[in-house]
Design a protein around this nucleic acid. Structure first.
Lengths: 210, 210
DNA sequence: GCACACTACTCCACCCTGGAGTAGTGTCAA
DNA sequence: TTGACACTACTCCAGGGTGGAGTAGTGTGC
């Protein structure tokens, strides 16, 4: 049997909620999947076709204008079985791609300006995403949830997303403050401040808001 | 000119610190890059070859046993220029792949047991990575840092990594406690508890340790 | 001198990205 | 009523990236 990837199950899970067209799937993914499993639009178009080919979804045509039809995907019994089986298997460990941290890691190859501007740029991205998330949750509280019967789940995801974005924003503010105190970017090494920070890390003491 | 990817610059940045063999690069990546830019071993072997092809690194042979030679990669002047130029450009936004959250998102397609076991499995992964990170920082404090002159940078990354792992661990404990209170996984919707949580999210009040 | 764990890679099928391209749809206004 | 234009709803593809299997040399211990 051909292997399904985690992305396959991400789509299959959406199809288990209701039937969607590929276009709707890409939009729904932007509002939900994206926070835990970000995938490109082109792949979100391709994946349901694969599910059909493997028998985990089927497709029907619906009118979508005077000329156009749209393909609507729905889960099959085999798809539901596969999804349940996956939900009982072992998950992969979380992975973060954080380019600002990577660039900070090479701070000693450039000047303070470049590092600070990377942090500032990332922070404004993060603020935008924070605001987007807040708008979603406010809509839910205002009675405009697309799947109100799933809100007990969405709430737990929302808590995580808010706290993650907060952490990244606060860390980038913290890093900015620290770097502003540096006399230069390279060769500082184990300063007293660095030793304090590392000691606090191993002592499991709070740092960022301290 | 052929485009370099963020991964290219991640490797180029390591080569800017000192020359490495591909094997050493994979090991160094496990101890550093991995926390901000996780890449597969096979790709870490392939990328320096590409850098050589494009003139940003060059390779020399060094003996590595009675028979074997190893390829040692070092950055070129063009590589250093490219790295500095990249460090002044705009970073991509952070992206998280968190399969446990994805699975929780589909909690209503399975039972409490499956969801709780996903969370437990992820938590034990996270605890292991937390311990690994702590061991690294303790070694630095004990004077065993591979690049002591870079510790002022490493400390900022360590602060972020610890806080991120803590957040994920604490959130998964929080989610476990919440789910244990659920009478079932599906159809609960906007309970009083859910409304409280969402209200706290939009009010920017702490939740996880409350 | 042989077993065996570890070192140091290569290979490849397939997953996935992002950007370019294409054509139909709805709306407003000249 | 027609044409401009933003938006909808996709397809295509070169090339980046993954993960697991495979291979052969190296150092250690018995």
């Amino acid at each position: 049997m051909a292997e399904l990837t985690t992305t396959s199950f991400a789509i299959l899970g959406l199809l288990n909620i209701k039937p969607w067209s590929a276009y709707e799937l890409t939009h729904q993914a932007k509002r939900s999947l994206r926070y835990a499993w970000p995938k490109s639009e082109s792949h979100l178009y391709a994946e349901p076709k694969r599910l059909v080919r493997l028998g985990f979804a089927r497709v029907t045509e619906a009118p979508a204008g005077p000329v156009r039809t749209r393909q609507v995907y729905r889960i099959t019994a085999a798809g539901r079985r596969a999804l349940q089986h996956w939900l009982e298997s072992e998950p992969a460990a979380p992975q973060l791609e954080f380019e600002a941290v990577l660039r900070l890691f090479y701070a000693d190859a450039t000047d303070k300006n470049a590092v600070l501007s990377t942090l500032a740029h990332t922070r404004s991205d993060l603020h935008r995403r924070y605001a987007e998330g807040m708008a979603l949750v406010e809509a839910w509280l205002g009675g405009e949830a697309p799947f109100p019967e799933r809100l007990h789940i969405s709430a737990l995801v929302a808590v995580f997303t808010r706290d993650l974005l907060s952490l990244m924003i606060e860390w980038s503010e913290f890093a900015q403050r620290e770097i502003e105190q540096w006399p230069r970017t390279d060769g500082l090494g184990m300063t007293q401040r660095t030793r304090d920070l590392l000691q606090r890390v191993v002592d499991e003491q709070p740092i960022i808001d301290a």
